[in-house]
């Protein structure tokens, strides 16, 4: 069974139809890359999956559970959405780390707030805190940041910030980790370290959806690629199919800009 199924997602901003009948599914442990030019709706699609935008129409299922169905008001309630968000993690283009917290605190904050809702929190406070801290340290270590844990975001490079942001998203153990152009705000020299970390996650079979302009990377890391254009999925398939044998003229045109440039 697919870990994620999105069916007929549509979204309109004012008069522009940003997403038009988007359907796709993703298997556990797979990596899906979404490519396409700016304004094609890639970011909006990710934001819909994370409930930062509410789709006008469509159904989102995770592990067979209906998280969102535009026809069922029960599933679109604000109070319900908070829990459902936890199925997804999102790494932003601009990191969005919390500036007043250290790298370690950034990774721990949300987990600690969630832990407070556990019935046994009061009794096991110290123990829970230590567990969360140990896990956060492990994650930062995995991101190659063991010597940067007590630094504040403004003391870190863009690449380091983005790796903290990845650790922060992983701390909540989402079923599906989403990346919204994770390297677009970085100096070219720093993109490598972030891509390496994402590749590492792919090797550990982390289920991921990556919106990216790094074509070589998408080709290397993905099990599935979607090419979006004007709010539609124009083409989807394996990296070989999409990159080497694109069927649509528009896809060829888009890809040629990367290979020739």
């Amino acid at each position: 069974m697919a870990i994620l199924e999105a069916k007929h997602i549509s979204k309109k901003f004012e008069r522009t139809q940003v997403l038009k009948d988007i359907s796709f599914s993703l298997e556990k442990g797979q990596v899906l890359s979404i490519i396409g030019s700016s304004g094609s709706g890639k970011t909006t699609l990710l934001r819909c999956l994370n409930f930062l935008e509410r789709p006008d129409g469509g159904v989102i299922l995770v592990n067979g559970e209906t998280l969102f169905n535009s026809d069922d008001p029960e599933t679109t309630k604000e109070s319900e959405i908070r829990r459902k968000r936890l199925h997804f993690g999102l790494v932003f283009q601009s990191f969005n780390l919390f500036p007043q917290y250290t790298a370690l605190q950034n990774v721990m904050l949300a987990k600690e707030l969630l832990a407070k809702e556990q019935p046994d929190y009061k009794a096991r406070k110290k123990e829970i805190h230590d567990e969360i801290e140990a896990e956060a340290k492990k994650l930062l270590d995995q991101m190659g940041l063991s010597d940067r844990m007590s630094n504040y975001p403004h003391q870190l490079s863009g690449g380091q910030c983005q790796r903290v942001a990845i650790a922060r998203a992983l701390a909540l153990k989402p079923d599906i980790l989403c990346f919204d152009e994770p390297t677009s705000a970085l100096d070219p020299e720093l993109t490598g370290e972030v891509l390496k970390v994402i590749k590492g996650l792919a090797d550990q079979e982390t289920t991921m959806i990556i919106v990216t302009h790094e074509m070589a990377f998408a080709r290397d890391v993905s099990s599935q690629v979607i090419f979006m254009d004007d709010g539609r999925i124009l083409e989807q398939g394996t990296p070989q199919e999409v990159f080497e044998r694109p069927k649509e003229e528009r896809t060829k045109q888009f890809l040629s800009r990367y290979t020739n440039g």
């Binding site: 994370n50 409930f51 930062l52 908070r82 829990r83 968000r85 936890l86 997804f88 993690g89 999102l90 932003f92 601009s94 969005n96 780390l97 919390f98 500036p99 007043q100 904050l109 949300a110 707030l113 969630l114 922060r168 998203a169 909540l172």
Partner: peptide
């Protein structure tokens, strides 16, 4: 920045947690 609130939301924080733990000090 709006991204601060969005980051909090995506991490499953409630609006009041976001206000008191993230936005207020900034």
């Amino acid at each position: 920045p709006k991204g601060q609130e969005e980051a909090g939301l995506v991490l499953g924080m409630t609006r009041s947690q976001i206000f008191f733990k993230v936005t207020l000090l900034q």
